[in-house]
Design a protein around this nucleic acid. Structure first.
Lengths: 225, 225
DNA sequence: CTATATCCTCAGAATTTTTTCAGCTAAAAT
DNA sequence: ATTTTAGCTGAAAAAATTCTGAGGATATAG
């Protein structure tokens, strides 16, 4: 766990907090990026692809709640909220919106570390940076996926799509959500691109009868594990 | 209608806290067991097989930390720790030992509820998106409905119609309301379309005698559960 | 610079879903 | 008992969605 290079994105408008967290977490071996507002964060997320996002609730341009609602569409990261207020209702609101944990400022750095580790432990239970989902083994560090013990050779887009399915197994994912996750809100192309990539994945999984990735006509696709 | 029945084990030596939590959580639909010390808890866990364990740190016979180390070996429940102290180091110790979350007493009940939900949706995503209505199980994450334990294969409109009934069971829904719900105010077609879709649903439910979806002549239809 | 891999679009085929319609049946009203 | 009305049903046309093969554009590697 200590050697694994997990990526953490810090979103806070307060420069001193960004610096403090950034420094401390880098020392622990994490790879850090920072953003000072929600918009910058949304731009960074697709390329940086963080495992954990630390998110201040109170921010000027786009507040934490807004971001909280948007992030799950474009990322599989765990969200850890920071708040200056101790108002329990704010905390409840954040958790209901999809946050995985929260910390009240001021907090002890040790506690933040422990809570980050809890998130990573939840996401990678076997401590190896790998996650097993049915016949799949996802290694986010090496960016590989194996299927029935065979490593798949995937293009970047195929990998991203399969990753999205693996983080949301047995759920029906609409083509719209898939497009937003992979190509972003500003994608201008045809929805047919999703069908094409589904076909590529099915070919690589030998899923000729569409049993592994099933089509829910009119609603989307679902990975069955 | 009920959400999936999750089981929660409360471990605390303080009777009033056990009673308070037990009552409140039962009202939310959870199944509750309580134990007043670690040893009793260890005996209960195998048979009760809880999804979440709420655990007080400070207990006489076997303290929370001890229990924390043992539980993962015999259960894959989420552990939520309670403590009277605000000492951050205790929190860190609990989290490092395997606890998934931590609450400092006194806490707001709403916050406890929200944190329980976070644990459940992380660990049991399949179950937490699921509602049981009589012989039906509606899973809005998967976008599926099962009937007497058989998954139904539904078209988008059929799914939407059945969902509408399941959200309003044992109520008479007029054709007008159904048309507005499914096709919107601007629908230009024949009212007969509702009858057709009712027929499709009845066929898929083997409801030949119209006992499951009954016709209220002149008023509409009603799903009986 | 060439070879290869990846991305994306397009159009026709295959399939499923939606909608209409006409004749029929059962219930309610006269 | 007859008429009227509302709902039921089978069939089929119309529409929509997804699948698939092919190919060109763009990026990447050797």
């Amino acid at each position: 766990m200590t050697t694994a290079k997990f990526r953490i994105l810090i979103v806070d408008d307060d420069l001193s907090i960004r610096q403090m967290l950034s420094l401390g977490l880098k020392q622990e071996g994490y790879i850090i990026e920072t953003a000072e507002n929600g918009e910058d964060a949304l731009e960074l997320i697709p390329s940086f692809d963080p495992h954990v996002i630390i998110l201040d609730i109170m921010m000027p341009i786009m507040d934490g709640y807004e971001l909280c609602k948007t992030i799950p569409d474009i990322s599989n990261a765990s969200m850890l909220m920071l708040t200056a207020k101790d108002a329990s209702l704010d905390i409840v609101k954040g958790l209901r919106l999809g946050a995985n944990d929260y910390l009240v400022k001021p907090f002890h750095f040790e506690e933040l570390l422990a809570r980050i580790e809890v998130q990573l432990r939840n996401r990678f239970p076997d401590l190896s940076g790998q996650k097993t989902i049915g016949p799949f083994v996802l290694n986010e560090m090496k960016k590989t996926v194996s299927y029935n013990n065979n490593t798949l050779h995937l293009s970047p887009t195929e990998y991203k799509l399969l990753t999205y399915f693996l983080w949301n197994p047995n759920q029906t994912l609409s083509k719209e959500k898939i497009i937003i996750y992979i190509w972003g809100y500003d994608f201008e192309g045809e929805a047919n691109i999703v069908e094409v990539y589904i076909r590529y994945l099915r070919e690589k999984l030998n899923d000729n009868d569409h049993k592994q990735i099933i089509t829910i006509r009119g609603l989307g696709y679902r990975l069955v594990v």
